[in-house]
Design a protein around this nucleic acid. Structure first.
Length: 160
DNA sequence: AATACGATTGTCT
DNA sequence: GACAATCGTATTC
């Protein structure tokens, strides 16, 4: 079992969120998003990286959380810093997509060491649409966080 | 069949 | 800050 502590996430709100994969409708790739809460959704991007998400809404509603960074116990902070690095360290790929995350034999089990402290909020990273929404949540001070400071000041982007 | 693009990362200037 | 790497997916022809 891989033991890790999630320290950075982003929320994707589903069919009404222009930045979400679900915004463009249900396809074979995005199908797991419509599954029951606690379903892994893994996609491949930029020809190189996998990104790990978990569904969080009732079945039929495609909201999810992107897991952007985690402190992996007994590993360098760099290993889990950023969504691409994290999945590489955890050896996660699309075979996990659609699997129930809380099944013990699902292939990936992240046990949190302690709850995040000093949770800060910022705009989401790397997206082109809906950049004004402050839906990134991270533990300020964690050495595994991908971007310790918000991409820009919240005020400058109309987030507050 | 051909094309355009992306919820990233690493390297170079 | 700019840009290349690299390929599955969706769209269009």
């Amino acid at each position: 079992m891989i033991v890790a502590r999630i320290v950075e996430t982003e929320a994707y709100l589903g069919q009404n969120d222009p930045a979400a994969h679900a915004f463009k409708g249900r396809t074979p790739r995005t199908d797991p998003l419509w599954g029951p809460p606690g379903t892994w959704y893994v996609y491949f991007i930029y020809g190189m990286h996998h990104c790990l998400n978990i569904t969080v809404e009732p079945e039929g509603r495609p909201g999810c959380v992107l897991i952007r960074a985690a402190e992996i116990f007994k590993e360098s902070p760099d290993r889990g810093r950023g969504p691409g690095r994290l999945t590489r360290a955890l050896k996660v790929n699309r075979t996990l997509s659609g699997i129930r995350a809380f099944d013990r034999d699902c292939g990936l089990w992240l046990r949190e060491g302690r709850a995040p402290e000093n949770v800060s909020v910022s705009p989401r990273i790397g997206i082109r649409h809906a950049t004004e929404k402050a839906l990134r949540f991270f533990e300020a001070g964690s050495r595994s966080v991908s971007s310790p400071r918000p991409p820009q000041a919240l005020e400058a982007r109309g987030c507050v």
